[in-house]
Design a protein around this nucleic acid. Sequence first.
RNA 1: GCGGCUGUAGUCUAGUCUGGUUAGGACUUGGGCCUUCCAAGCCUACGACCCGGGUUCAAAUCCCGGCAGCCGCACCA
Length: 577
Amino acid sequence: MKNEDVMNLARKRGFLWSSFEIYSGSAGFFDYGPLGATLKNRVMEKWRNYYLVREGFYEIESPTIMPEEALKASGHVDHFNDAMTQCKDCMDVYRADHVIRDSTGKEVEGLENQELTEILSEEKIRCPKCNGHLTHVWSYNLMFQTLIGAKGKKTGYMRPETAQGIFIPFKRLLRFFRGKLPFGVVQLGKAYRNEISPRQGMIRLREFTQAEAEIFVDPHDKSHPHFHRVAQDILTLYPASCQESGAEAIQLTAEKAVMDKVVASELLTYQLCLARSFLMELGLSEDVLRFRQHMSTEMAHYAIDCWDVEVYTDRYGWIEVIGIADRTDFDLKSHSNYSKEDLRVFMEYPEPLTIKKLVLKAKMGKFGPLFKGDAHMILKALEEIDAEAIQEALDDGGVYQLELQGKVHKITSDLVDFQVVEETLRGEKIYPHVIEPSYGIDRIVYSVLLHSYTQEDDRSYFKLPVEVAPVGVSIFPLVNQEELATVAQEILEDLRNQGITAEKDTSGTIGRRYARSDEIGVPFAVTVDHTSLEDDTVTIRERDSQEQVRVAIDDLPQTLHLLLSGKKEFKEFEARK
RNA sequence: GCGGCUGUAGUCUAGUCUGGUUAGGACUUGGGCCUUCCAAGCCUACGACCCGGGUUCAAAUCCCGGCAGCCGCACCA
């Protein structure tokens, strides 16, 4: 299997290995070795180039440990928490709420374990499979719990996603962006989930790296100013409807996907295109990529639309590497409710709005003496009520009955006047909607390794794009002789001083060295041969084609810069030869 | 979490059933020789019985427990 070959090579050459090996390891944790860490950093660098430089977003960094309240608001404390029960006979494990719902039809989400245990025994619920007895209900929370502070009185959790770190300081961020929508904030960092049984290598980790962007937008404007740039991109879409009917994925241009409302908005579609372009530049081809829409059953209740960007793997099938969702105003509203902070944005209308409105004015001379202490409270209550409704009631029966805290107050026409006033509205306060692309960096790195792995004849290597290859160039003396080795060493130092990642290898024969260099995906190799000693030229060999061109040693740094930045292709140099 | 199978250098593996000499080989890797372009050859070196306990004069080998991996079941907001 390709997965095995790739993971073996990745382990052997210092990309990836499972963590804590000398203590017999721990499932769900991976180390990035020297080349893996570099590769991952280059992928993240590229991501930053997309979202910070090109989209103009800003990055923040928040703590990985979060206090309980913050995760209460986000719903993670209550809903990340599965109530489990197990059959004492067949040992099958179930979610307690599912068993109860299936057997009694009761929706019991959110009840305490104690209550669920009681329901199980009162309703005499047995194992749905073998009718055996079920154990008491226990919680399995997917978050790692910890204690904050010396006395350990405050519960904290390792964050299960980086997104919350952006929602929480929203007020500060809004101020930073001077109060204007849309704006985007990103965070790259570790997130933690204590998976029950992670047995899928790099695919299901207990500690993983996310790159998330939260794009705060006007709910009424989900367009993107640069949509035309991606309008003709062809997307492989697998909408919920196709999944339900068992149909194949469909291919549409981005423009058509928006027009036909296959994807909910232009902005969301733009994000799909961005993700596609990002993955393709990492060497993933179109035929291993697709966008799968969440089915209504799997989508969070508050989301308008959600698409998983999936990559095909031989070992695990289609895997989600990026999730792109329109989360609406759920997160900000929820944090607003819990924190009592107003997390709305004042949206100014293009033109101030002038409206004519009927307003009730109390005649305080009569009103005050009549209601005495309650007068103030009644006035406040009347302000909340549409004045026209009151006027109507007075015209009809001469009295408007206001019920307040169990008391009925009679408002008669001699107590109030009505006036038409003009009011100017400059805008309104709204909760922005959030578009969230969430990238699983580890899965992307795995996909890049998997799909760049190439076997040709008897050589196998990672065909990594020049942009992310951990080492840019290998320097070899053709044979291991001192004069050649000296030149090679000089070139190595020169290139390193010019900011190029270079390695030298003098061991074994030249063929072996090429093979070793290819294996870790070094795109170019420079060979110092005897001609070099005569005319100060060397050859550059390209990894993929194994072709060589000869260049002057003096031109080497500049040539390699062009090649490694992707500004020039190797073929162009060949043509000149 | 449950059940089944498995665990010997970086990798692949012999040996385990039937306990007994210095745990053998191949590839890889380091050093050297040779070598004027794609893992050639020669010399040489490094390197392992998953961890803990038990049985025994003696444990890689038998027994128990743990850990990890694979497969199946379950779980995956």
